[in-house]
Design a protein around this nucleic acid. Structure first.
Length: 281
DNA sequence: TCCGTCAAACAGTCAA
DNA sequence: TTGACTGTTTGACGGA
């Protein structure tokens, strides 16, 4: 594979009408989930099995016939998809390019294709560009879009364990028809983005805490001001004779043996997640 | 393995 | 309806 001579030279565009059945991949996902989870999501996946979507494909039949060849070249270069144990010379981006000429909906449709279908269709459409791929494989950033099934499977695996040992990585890669490196990268990104999301959540939480504390501080200052105005004697009393109970926050004089006439009302409860002093009471 | 970054793919919006 | 534009998501890469 990968030789121009192996493939016929196409001329012009071809239009195809087909019916997609995703039973093969669904079975694969289902099998895997049954391993991961004793109660696989059968009802959900059964919808895939029973789905027979008609679809329309508009393919490019010749490299020479690309209406915008430089764009196509950029997008196809260096992309490939691994199916089974062999690397198949095709590109997820490449069939996006092909489908992009026929509209966004088709593009979306193609993301849901099973690996086998992708292999068949994309091989037909882009195999004649292999020489160009080789040419620019080094300087083009490879990018594929995982199918829904692949993403779901990865998500399921991630739920089980957020890191993979080499054996698990290999197994998952085989199962998903991806390279181990791709699985590894997916997990790296997933971990990083989970962490980022958690950081954002924490940040929001802290902001709210800060706001609440600021409000509380303002309220207490105001209360103190009111007390100062109402009870000038309060301030005249030597500080050494006053103490505050840390639990109920009442001000007591002389070690608290007798009740102070200046006892403050208990502070409204404010829960501080970091220092929950009220527990000491 | 993590982190920062790039860039393709995609979705949403809006004017013509 | 369509194409341009913009913002977001996500696969991939290189360095620490």
């Amino acid at each position: 594979m990968g030789n121009d001579q192996d493939h016929p030279t196409y001329s012009g565009l071809h239009l195809g009408l087909g019916l997609s059945l995703t039973t093969d991949e669904t079975t694969m996902v289902d099998d895997h989930l049954s391993l991961l989870n004793p109660t696989p999501m059968k009802p959900y996946f059964s919808s895939f099995i029973t789905q027979a979507e008609p679809y329309l494909t508009l393919g490019l039949s010749s490299t020479e016939s690309y209406p915008n060849q430089h764009v196509a070249k950029n997008k196809i270069d260096g992309n490939y998809k691994a199916c089974g144990d062999d690397l198949v010379d095709l590109s997820a981006s490449a069939h996006s390019v092909a489908s992009s000429f026929s509209g966004g909906r088709l593009m979306k449709r193609e993301r849901d294709l099973s690996c086998e279908e992708v292999e068949t269709e994309a091989t037909e459409r882009v195999s004649s560009r292999v020489s160009d791929e080789d040419e620019d494989a080094t300087n083009a950033r490879k990018k594929l879009r995982l199918t829904k099934q692949q993403s779901m499977l990865l998500e399921e695996s991630f739920k089980q364990h957020s890191t993979l040992n080499p054996k698990q990585k290999q197994a998952l890669a085989r199962q998903l028809h991806l390279r181990p490196r791709q699985v590894e990268v997916w997990f790296q990104n997933r971990r990083a983005r989970t962490k980022l999301k958690q950081t954002e959540v924490d940040c929001e939480f802290l902001k709210k805490c800060c706001e609440t504390l600021t409000e509380e501080n303002k309220r207490l200052k105001k209360e103190l001001q009111t007390l100062k105005q109402a009870q000038p004697m309060y301030m005249a009393m030597p500080a050494a004779t006053l103490s505050m109970c840390p639990s109920c926050e009442r001000i007591v004089g002389d070690g608290g043996s007798k009740k102070s006439p200046f006892s403050m009302a208990p502070k409204p409860h404010f829960y501080n997640p970091f220092t929950n002093y009220s527990a000491a009471c």
